[in-house]
């Protein structure tokens, strides 16, 4: 199938005065792992809800697996799997019963039902817990069970809304193993949202979304290449004076970040000795690293994606409160 697995054209969702999603154009290829990256409240969940037919777009078009989300929502629903941001399991039932419920809803043929359930449980290593009630599961196990459920009916496209949120790092990397394995075994298209920059590195391509708009789209390497070379972070005894000097003497544009100055430079290793020698203020700390997606985000939006950051956070909070109900 040469057709895009997911395609959107000027997709917009407006809640009264506020535009949560402000015109998104996307084309996700079959078999791709596509990451949707952005801070909380950027419009990630709203977009995913529209693609999954849970929310009606205000304007624009979206097609998933070749079906229009507004004109043919039933076909879209049949073709997709969904792992929600918040757990959506029946804790009173066993893992197997949850999967059976799902198999019935999605009309998985009786002949392959049991085999398919065993297969997906094996894939997420829960075969030995098939008959335990979900309420006895840890957060990571629940998430794995939800992933198993999402692929039970062999969807074309699997949507994952923050699949690793609230999980410990070890479990998170485990989940990623399952997803990579899944793509290899089932050739499924995976569309996921995350606000963890390091996770976006696992994706084939990433769209960075901020305030309801896509601000960058490409492979992780392409995006990182947008940051000019290396990232140097320095701390000096007088950051303000140093910033002025960096601009005048070196022609650099430093950015203040948490009591340090960040500089992008093509050859960072050669620049550091000159900085230490030529700055009037004393340099107290220096780090040099390859650019990360955090740097890309910072460069594109002028703020870090970290949640502690104020400013952006206030907006998110505001929008979060406004749209908290959308996760219904």
């Amino acid at each position: 199938m040469a057709e895009a697995a997911i395609a959107t054209e000027q997709l917009v969702k407006r809640y009264g005065e506020i535009e949560a999603v402000r015109g998104i154009d996307l084309a996700v290829m079959p078999g791709e792992i596509f990451g949707f990256l952005g801070p909380n409240g950027a419009g990630k969940s709203t977009t995913i809800s529209m693609l999954c037919t849970l929310l009606r777009p205000t304007s624009g078009r979206a097609a998933v697996a070749g079906f229009d989300v507004t004109r043919d929502p039933d076909s879209v629903r049949a073709a997709i799997g969904l792992v929600f941001q918040d757990p959506a399991l029946d804790e009173q039932l066993t893992a197997r019963e949850n999967l059976e419920f799902h198999a019935f809803l999605y009309d998985v043929p009786r002949a392959i039902r049991a085999q398919r359930i065993a297969e997906v449980l094996g894939m997420v290593e829960l075969a030995d817990r098939a008959n335990s009630k979900v309420m006895t599961f840890s957060g990571g196990m629940k998430r794995r069970l939800e992933i198993a459920r999402g692929i039970l009916h062999s969807p074309e496209v699997l949507f994952l809304d923050e699949p690793t949120r609230g999980l410990d790092p070890q479990t998170r990397s485990h989940i990623w193993d399952y997803l990579q394995d899944l793509r290899r075994r089932e050739g499924i298209t995976i569309f996921m949202t995350t606000h963890y920059m390091d996770e976006a590195e696992f994706c084939d391509r990433i769209a960075i979304i901020d305030m309801g708009r896509i601000v960058a789209l490409g492979t992780p390497d392409e995006l990182k290449a947008r940051v000019g070379g290396d990232v140097i972070t320095i701390a000096t005894t007088d950051n303000a004076a140093s910033a002025a000097e960096l601009a005048s003497k070196f022609g650099l544009t430093p950015a203040a970040d948490n009591g340090t100055l960040r500089i992008e430079a093509s050859d960072g290793a050669a620049l550091i000795p000159r900085l230490v020698r030529d700055l009037s203020a004393r340099v107290t700390a220096v780090t040099l690293r390859r650019p990360s997606l955090d740097d890309v985000f910072l460069k594109l939006t002028g703020r870090a994606i970290r949640e502690e950051q104020a400013g952006a956070l206030d907006r998110m909070r505001m929008m979060g409160a406004r749209f908290g109900g959308r996760r219904r």
Partner: peptide, 8 residues
């Protein structure tokens, strides 16, 4: 409920 609401 979401599990049921997104089902075809």
């Amino acid at each position: 409920l979401k599990e049921v609401l997104v089902a075809p």
